[in-house]
Amino acid sequence: MTEYKLVVVGAGGVGKSALTIQLIQNHFVDEYDPTIEDSYRKQVVIDGETCLLDILDTAGQEEYSAMRDQYMRTGEGFLCVFAINNTKSFEDIHHYREQIKRVKDSEDVPMVLVGNKCDLPSRTVDTKQAQDLARSYGIPFIETSAKTRQGVDDAFYTLVREIRKHKEKMSKDGKKKKKKSKTKCVIM
């Protein structure tokens, strides 16, 4: 069974824990209790493949930012979460993405942009803004509501699919490099 290491990042209060708990335990946590770091595991079937999701729910508070490099190193894919009623959390996505790329030393890291709290009427981040940002990053965008469960499975499952595509691409690139290195030079 394939294991996928997913990391949920975003500013404090955007609903990272609520999304994760909704996926794992099928219930909505409405009281806000700032996370330092929590880890969850769940076995699911995605596109006919049974897999184990190892999900790291991270601290959004700035005082825990020193811990970010460590979990970013171990993560295979990242859910970059903002709240649709919090423009600052949307603007912060850029910083999370840049930090992930720096730590992973790669421009090509599996990510999904997630606009959470889409059940709320007080939207300050337009869907088109988020779609445009995701398009500019070359990553999928999904709106979710941890409260109603809308888009929750889709967000995590899409990230797994992005990781699969990335692994497939990397193995193809690896095979191309191996083929090239088999060419021999004969000096007579």
Rank of each mutant, 00 (worst) to 15 (best):
T2G: 11
E3F: 05
E3S: 05
Y4Q: 13
L6N: 03
L6Q: 03
L6K: 02
V7F: 04
V8I: 07
V8R: 01
G10Y: 02
G12V: 05
G13A: 11
G13F: 13
V14E: 11
G15Y: 02
A18I: 04
L19V: 10
T20R: 00
I21N: 15
I21Q: 14
L23P: 00
L23A: 09
I24F: 08
I24Q: 10
I24T: 07
Q25N: 15
Q25S: 13
N26A: 12
N26Q: 14
N26Y: 07
N26V: 04
H27T: 14
F28Y: 08
F28K: 01
D30H: 15
E31A: 09
E31W: 11
E31R: 04
Y32G: 01
D33Q: 00
D33N: 01
D33W: 03
T35W: 00
I36V: 08
I36K: 00
I36P: 00
E37W: 00
Y40S: 00
R41N: 13
K42R: 09
Q43F: 11
V44F: 06
V44Q: 14
V45Q: 15
I46M: 14
I46L: 13
I46E: 15
D47E: 12
D47I: 02
D47T: 09
G48P: 08
G48R: 09
G48H: 08
G48M: 07
E49L: 04
E49C: 06
E49T: 08
E49N: 13
E49R: 08
E49V: 08
T50Y: 14
T50F: 10
T50M: 13
T50S: 10
C51H: 12
C51F: 09
C51M: 12
L52S: 14
L52W: 11
L52Q: 14
L53M: 11
D54N: 06
L56P: 00
D57E: 00
T58L: 00
G60F: 00
G60H: 00
E63R: 05
E63Q: 07
E63G: 03
Y64R: 00
Y64F: 09
S65Y: 05
S65N: 03
A66M: 06
R68L: 00
R68C: 02
D69V: 01
D69T: 04
Q70N: 11
Y71R: 00
M72Q: 02
M72I: 03
M72N: 01
M72L: 01
T74R: 02
E76K: 03
E76N: 03
G77T: 07
L79G: 01
C80H: 08
C80R: 01
A83G: 13
N86P: 11
N86G: 10
K88F: 15
S89A: 14
S89R: 10
S89P: 03
F90G: 10
D92Q: 04
I93A: 14
I93E: 02
H94S: 12
H95V: 10
H95A: 15
H95G: 13
Y96E: 02
R97M: 15
E98Q: 08
E98P: 12
Q99A: 10
Q99E: 04
I100A: 04
R102H: 15
R102L: 07
K104E: 02
K104P: 03
K104T: 10
D105T: 08
D105F: 14
S106V: 12
S106P: 04
E107N: 09
V109K: 02
P110C: 03
V112M: 09
V112L: 11
V114K: 01
G115K: 04
K117S: 14
K117A: 14
C118G: 08
D119G: 05
L120D: 15
L120E: 11
P121S: 11
S122K: 07
S122A: 09
R123Y: 10
R123I: 10
R123N: 14
T124A: 08
T124Y: 08
V125I: 10
V125Q: 11
V125M: 10
D126C: 08
D126I: 06
T127M: 07
Q129Y: 13
Q129M: 07
Q131C: 09
Q131E: 11
D132E: 06
L133N: 14
A134S: 09
A134G: 06
A134N: 08
A134D: 12
R135D: 14
R135S: 10
R135Y: 14
R135F: 04
R135A: 05
S136K: 10
Y137S: 13
Y137C: 07
G138E: 12
G138N: 03
P140F: 02
P140L: 02
F141W: 03
I142H: 12
I142K: 04
I142M: 04
I142T: 08
I142R: 12
S145T: 15
A146V: 05
R149A: 10
Q150L: 06
G151Q: 07
V152W: 15
V152G: 10
D153P: 07
D154N: 07
A155M: 14
A155F: 15
T158S: 12
L159C: 05
L159F: 03
L159Q: 02
V160R: 11
V160I: 07
E162P: 04
R164E: 14
R164W: 07
K165C: 05
K165W: 10
K167A: 08
K167T: 12
K167D: 09
E168N: 04
E168S: 11
K169V: 04
K169Q: 11
K169T: 14
K169P: 15
M170W: 15
K172Q: 06
K172L: 08
D173P: 06
D173L: 14
G174E: 11
G174Y: 04
K175T: 15
K176N: 09
K177I: 06
K178Y: 10
K178A: 09
K178F: 09
K179E: 12
K180E: 05
K180Q: 09
S181Q: 13
S181E: 13
S181Y: 09
S181T: 15
K182E: 11
K182A: 15
K184A: 05
V186E: 15
V186P: 10
M188C: 07
M188E: 15
